[in-house]
């Protein structure tokens, strides 16, 4: 362990994240941005663009389009399972934290769930930035040892006979779960099917909505 000086800030012995500590963090980030801007290392306009990209363009709606297309277009489904990176790029989603994509398909026999026990690896181009729970200690610790318990936390119960397969993203391969297409959706368009896909169903901690669950 190294003991970098900057880790020993005034609140080193405070372990609760009360209001004052958050304000301290906020001040620290503001000061850092002004230092880095003044030194000419960052352009604040670039920061604004990055934030806009991840808040408005890169998010689970991209993955929802991929899933709905796979459900409604058998040839696309085949391409997606064979080379997910290329098939996802057909819909114009690619890049940072999605360079090497693998799609894992749920079946009546097997349910897939994705985790990163070591940090927070997540397929950004199709799902956006990960939610807090995905990055949290409870999920990272239990997804690999007690995935049925984790599913219970999400209100999901699967048949005891369904095999559970957990994918720990320990390298630069990123996984997207292809959930099962809900019954009673024969003849639905990709746009209609998209209404049933949830973010959590593409991580494996949820199931798609059933027809009638949407407005």
């Amino acid at each position: 362990m190294t003991g970098h000086d900057h880790d020993h800030h005034d609140h080193h012995h405070h372990h609760d994240h009360d209001h004052s500590e958050l304000s301290e963090t906020e001040l620290r980030v503001r000061a850092l941005e002004s230092i880095l801007t003044e030194k000419g290392y960052v352009d604040p306009a670039s920061l604004d663009l990055l934030i806009d990209l991840y808040e408005k363009k890169i998010g689970p709606r991209n993955g929802i389009r991929v899933v709905a297309k796979a459900w409604s277009d058998p040839a696309y489904h085949v391409r997606l399972m064979k080379d997910a990176t290329a098939a996802i790029a057909e819909l114009d989603y690619s890049g940072r934290q999605g360079e090497h994509m693998v799609v894992v398909e749920n079946t009546p026999d097997q349910h897939n769930m994705v985790v990163c026990t070591l940090c927070s690896c997540y397929p950004h181009p199709v799902l956006g930035l990960p939610p807090v729970w995905y990055k949290s200690a409870p999920y990272r610790s239990r997804a690999v040892s007690d995935p049925r318990g984790v599913l219970q936390d999400f209100g999901v119960a699967l048949p005891e006979t369904t095999k559970i397969r957990v994918w720990d993203s320990t390298a630069e391969i990123r996984y997207l779960v292809l959930p099962m297409r809900p019954k009673g959706t024969d003849g639905w368009s990709a746009e209609q099917l998209a209404e049933l896909v949830t973010r959590d169903s593409m991580i494996g901690t949820g199931l798609p909505k059933q027809p009638g669950e949407t407005a």
Binding site: T117, L118, C119, P131, V132, W133, S136, A137, P138, Y139, R140, S141, R142, V144, S145, V150, D153, F154, D168, D200, T205
Partner: peptide, 16 residues
């Protein structure tokens, strides 16, 4: 502490 797989005692997952 980052290597969390299988650790016990962190409690339930709380989605927001």
């Amino acid at each position: 502490a980052h290597d969390m797989g299988g650790a016990k005692g962190f409690g339930p997952v709380v989605p927001e």
